[in-house]
Structure formats: structure tokens, C-alpha cells
Amino acid sequence: MSSVEGDIIIPVSKPSPGSAGDTGLWRVFKPVVHEDRCIKCWLCWLYCPEEVISEGENGFPEINYSYCKGCGVCADVCPKDAIEMVPD
């Protein structure tokens, strides 16, 4: 009779931001918030697929550029054109 020897390996990934690296490096265009035009409706926050928009210290949307992929969805949904996509 033979028996199974060695360690049993169970692959477990640990939750962590940046699981695919610094995805901000994928960006071609960078979203820039013009606070003078922003009405804080937070639609950019709602629709950002990457969860990188939050309320900054000054109460306006703040973007985490380490992971923002530059898709431009935030700029597209902003009712006040307060987000500009500029070449990065």
C-alpha cells in the first residue's frame, strides 16, 4: 500500500489593493477634477468601475492615481463637465 506524501498545498490569495500591480500605469489619459465646476453630486464616484474616487479632505472628489486606469467613465457621467481627461 502506498500513501500520499508531502504537504497539501491550498492556494489562497490575500485581499489587497493593486492585485494586478500599479494599474495607474495603464493610463493614457488622466482625469482631473475642476473643483470650481463640481457640484458634489458624486455621480463620478457612483460610476467609477475601479473604486478609486473618494471624498478628499476639501470635500471634493479625490482620485487615487496609483490605480485609476484612465477609462474616463467619470468624465463621461459628470453632469457639469467638471472632470477633464488630459494626456498623462
Binding site: 468601475p49 475601479e50 473604486e51
Partner: peptide, 20 residues
């Protein structure tokens, strides 16, 4: 939410938006 930024999803992915 349970979604952590910087995943392997394509930019603009609808599936991650739904999950968020």
C-alpha cells in the same frame, strides 16, 4: 464595498462596476 482597486479588470469594465 468588497472590491479593492488595482485589479486585473480592463479599464471601464461593467462587471467590476456591478460588483462594487
Amino acid at each position: 464595498g468588497s472590491y479593492l482597486p488595482g485589479s486585473a479588470a480592463c479599464p471601464g469594465c461593467g462587471a467590476t462596476l456591478a460588483f462594487r
